[in-house]
């Protein structure tokens, strides 16, 4: 019985480790989910989501990640302006009471040469799930000074707010949001 439990625990542990070799280092804040959107067509407004978690699978020395999952707490949006953030959390935009989480689950990753890759996956935002394509590249990997092993990636994509059912009119220059993603994972 003890053996069985031990074997089960080992199998479970192993399968979890396989599915998510790297945990995104949100604890140490070596990852960020940033966005920018045009303001009136005259400049860029930037912001980020402060609270998220995720993991990815990656084989050492491989040119690409094999799987990425990220969950974002939508209420953690931060554009460095309390009144605007309150508006963004409200039902004109993210409606965070109704949709407290946004998720990204990769469905396919293709290697585009060198350290470049395209991560295709399902983004669920504001209750709408759509496929998005992230242009990403590996930034680097290796041992950290504290006995761990890390790998980091950067990616960019853009989404149309209307595609996700967010139709508050910010003007013709501001229908798309660019997402700039930086993730560093710690090998488990």
């Amino acid at each position: 019985m003890k053996k069985l439990a031990l074997a089960l625990a080992f199998t479970l542990g192993a399968s979890v480790a396989n599915a998510a070799d790297y945990i995104i280092d949100t604890k140490g804040a070596h990852a960020s989910i940033n966005f920018k959107i045009q303001h009136l067509g005259y400049s860029w407004l930037t912001g980020r989501f402060n609270d998220f978690s995720g993991e990815f699978s990656y084989e050492e020395g491989e040119p690409k990640v094999s799987k990425v999952n990220v969950t974002v707490k939508t209420a953690s949006i931060d554009s460095n302006h309390a009144e605007r953030d309150k508006h963004l959390r409200g039902d004109d935009f993210l409606d965070v009471k109704k949709y407290p989480e946004a998720t990204f689950v990769s469905t396919n990753v293709t290697h585009d040469g060198d350290d470049e890759m395209t991560i295709i996956g399902d983004l669920t935002l504001h209750g709408v799930t759509r496929s998005v394509s992230i242009d990403a590249h590996k930034v680097g990997e290796g041992k950290d000074p504290w006995g761990g092993y890390r790998a980091g990636f950067a990616g960019e994509t853009h989404i149309a707010l209307k595609d996700f059912g967010i139709d508050y009119d910010l003007g013709p220059a501001s229908t798309e949001v660019k997402l700039m993603l930086h993730i560093e994972g710690v090998k488990q």
């Binding site: 309390a82 009144e83 953030d85 309150k86």
Partner: peptide, 8 residues
């Protein structure tokens, strides 16, 4: 408190 939440 709404408008001063970010220090402004």
């Amino acid at each position: 408190l709404i408008s001063t939440a970010d220090g402004r």
